[in-house]
Amino acid sequence: MTEGNFVDYVKMHVSSGNGGKGSAHLHREKYIQKGGPDGGDGGRGGHIILRGNSNLWTLIHLKFKRHFKAGHGAHGSSGRSTGADGEDIYIDVPLGTVVRDSETDAVLFEITEDGEEKIVVEGGMGGRGNWHFKSSVNQTPRYAQPGMPLEEKDITLELKILADVGLVGFPNAGKSTLLSVLTSAKPKIADYEFTTLKPNLGIVEYRDFQSFVMADIPGIIEGAAEGKGLGYYFLRHIERNSILLFLIPADAKDIVEQYEILEDELRRYNPEMLDKERLICVSKSDMLDDELKSEIATILDKDLKSEYLFISSVAQQGLTELKDKLWKMLND
């Protein structure tokens, strides 16, 4: 998926349908001059329904269609005939979509399962026909209920991508290069910071035709939890990953310090993210000789509690071991 096709934030206006009016009809036939009330009920207005679709990975199909309006319920008629319900509108969204009220910013619900359906705005109820109001006191009511009015709402759709492994690191740490080597994804790669502006997804093929999904997430900078840099726009994507793969380049001034900054940004954004399983990879390790690797390993053994690996995407070093480790973590 190219970066330009990945849309993870959409605002839209949704409107349900009015309920149909109940009928105030009185029964009439050739030899029945004064038949009783037989007005039918009005039909229900159409709903706007969001539906999870596991075949979608982005909200791009909603980027240029921002208004959705459901059908109105038909009016009731004679012979106690109920009017037809208004047409429901179904909007397919990828799994991991969070729906917010644009005015209050309150979360309405989340779509996390394929085929899951949630009503955003309900259609108005149809009004009851006059035969409902017949009584011994009033045998020919000449009134019926009007339908309930439609409901309108401005909503915001935010996508938090669902991936097995999320790549976490500073800009230019080699995340996109690793994704391009392990998967068929073609992320933009260059030797400057913030090459990746939107998440990229790739499928890592493993043994026996098995696979798992990896997400390359734009680089974190210090202060991201407060919205600095790309801030909230990418931190939310890390929430839904099963495993966090921290990528720190071998030429970093202080590998432990970089890891602690990354960890602190995640903690400040959402402390629950630190409960996820994690693995640390020292990338670009083809620049290190055995002596330097040994020195770094001694420091990491002393200061880090998490497991770590030395890898190089360009030199194809340690990648098989990395896939084996990730697969084991995902299945344990």
Rank of each mutant, 00 (worst) to 15 (best):
M1R: 09
T2N: 08
V14W: 08
V14I: 14
G17N: 08
K21S: 07
K21F: 12
G22V: 08
L26T: 10
L26W: 07
E29T: 13
E29C: 12
Y31N: 11
D38H: 15
D38Q: 13
D38G: 14
D38R: 14
D38W: 15
G39N: 04
G40E: 01
D41Y: 11
D41C: 10
G43N: 11
R44V: 12
R44P: 07
G45Q: 10
L50C: 11
R51T: 11
R51S: 07
G52M: 05
N53Q: 10
N55Q: 15
T58C: 06
T58M: 09
L62A: 01
K63Q: 15
H67K: 14
G71Y: 11
A74N: 15
H75F: 15
R80W: 06
G83R: 13
A84S: 09
E87Y: 12
D88V: 08
I89D: 12
Y90M: 06
Y90E: 07
D92G: 07
L95G: 08
S102E: 02
T104C: 04
T104N: 06
E110D: 09
I111D: 04
T112S: 11
D114E: 04
G115N: 04
G115F: 05
V120S: 08
E122F: 02
G123R: 09
G129L: 02
F133Y: 11
S135H: 10
S136Y: 03
Q145G: 10
P146W: 03
G147T: 13
G147N: 12
M148C: 13
P149W: 07
E152D: 03
E152N: 10
K153A: 03
K160G: 09
K160Y: 08
D164C: 03
F170M: 04
L178S: 02
T183H: 08
S184P: 04
A185D: 03
K188H: 04
I189V: 05
D191S: 05
F194G: 11
L197M: 05
L197C: 03
G202H: 05
I203M: 03
E205Y: 06
E205G: 04
R207N: 05
S211Q: 02
F212Q: 01
F212W: 00
F212G: 00
M214Y: 02
E222L: 06
K228Y: 10
Y233I: 08
L235I: 05
S242L: 13
A250K: 10
A252M: 02
A252D: 06
D254L: 06
Q258T: 09
I261V: 15
L266Q: 13
M273Q: 04
K276P: 01
C281D: 00
K284C: 02
L288W: 15
D289R: 04
E291N: 15
S294G: 14
I296M: 00
T298Q: 01
I299Q: 14
D301M: 12
L304W: 00
S306R: 00
F310D: 06
V314I: 12
V314S: 09
Q316G: 03
T320F: 14
T320Q: 14
E321K: 15
D324H: 02
K325C: 00
L326W: 00
L326K: 06
N331H: 15
N331L: 11
